[in-house]
Design a protein around this nucleic acid. Sequence first.
DNA 1: GAATATATTGGAATAAAATGGAATTTCATG
DNA 2: CATGAAATTCCATTTTATTCCAATATATTC
Lengths: 161, 161
Amino acid sequence: MLAFCGEERCTIDANGRLKLPLQFIDSFLEQDKSGEIILHCLDEGALALYGVATFKEMRYRELQQQDRIANSLLMRRNLRRFGAMSCSETISRQGRITLPESYRKRCALANSSSVVVVGIEIGVEIWNAERWEKELEAISSYEKLRAEAEINSSIERRPLL
Amino acid sequence: MLAFCGEERCTIDANGRLKLPLQFIDSFLEQDKSGEIILHCLDEGALALYGVATFKEMRYRELQQQDRIANSLLMRRNLRRFGAMSCSETISRQGRITLPESYRKRCALANSSSVVVVGIEIGVEIWNAERWEKELEAISSYEKLRAEAEINSSIERRPLL
DNA sequence: GAATATATTGGAATAAAATGGAATTTCATG
DNA sequence: CATGAAATTCCATTTTATTCCAATATATTC
């Protein structure tokens, strides 16, 4: 079965907890029997869930360079971004995860609201419903631009616009 | 469990003490059973907490070059900066640390005020709430610029604006 | 140098919140 | 229509946070 695919509607309960769709729970448990996952708040305003191994892979290179941190503002900012915007959680025996309050706020995931859980091949993302609509539109209009650019370059002239 | 991650609100008590969130206490104790940590006042106006080993790692390279100190004002200034702006503390049995008055003042961490404690993967930072908002905005606008540049370069033409 | 005043530290009690689980309801399937 | 599975709601328990107070240590004044 294809892991981390599909688009589902779920509700966040009154305490900020989300019951994950079964298929996603299975995909995470397949990766890591303990059910530990990483929550990461994306700059585009959605909450990503990754397996621990997937996330560590993403962060490995930068964390090697500890001696440069003291003298680089950009490095400290990057640590802040990933540190503050990531935390680990464990899928409970009832298939629930608790979303930290600050992440809920930032991603506009209100308690007792309906959200969209999206498979992204290497994990899942939790989106506020309206934001997800906008993101789909953004993806679509970018694809149109790219298609246009591809056509233009194939006939070897500059785009019309 | 992922060490030093997440974003939490805490209050500094009337005596300038901070009760650390449990997850951060655990992360520090895991590194060093004694609970000894280094407080370091950052130039961007926040207070960083590092494990002793982490801090020594950050300072190791520079402190090797003692022979150059006598002939370098910049080096002496750097020693001053790290010397004056760093001190050690021990996490108390109740999970509290006392923040020195001069650091509180410099980092705008007022007594009886609400502050933000941020995991930065290799330690934590304590931020004045408003300053943290500003820092997040700075990080976010940088990311947006980077994203825009990425899109533009991928379709190989200038932005429409 | 002693006594008083002040600040600092540690701890306990109370209040709040998060967690886990069970029960009921809903939905899908045979 | 009945059965099983899953989702949602609600409640009890445990954990965590906050406040307040006592004890100790430090500083100041006479």
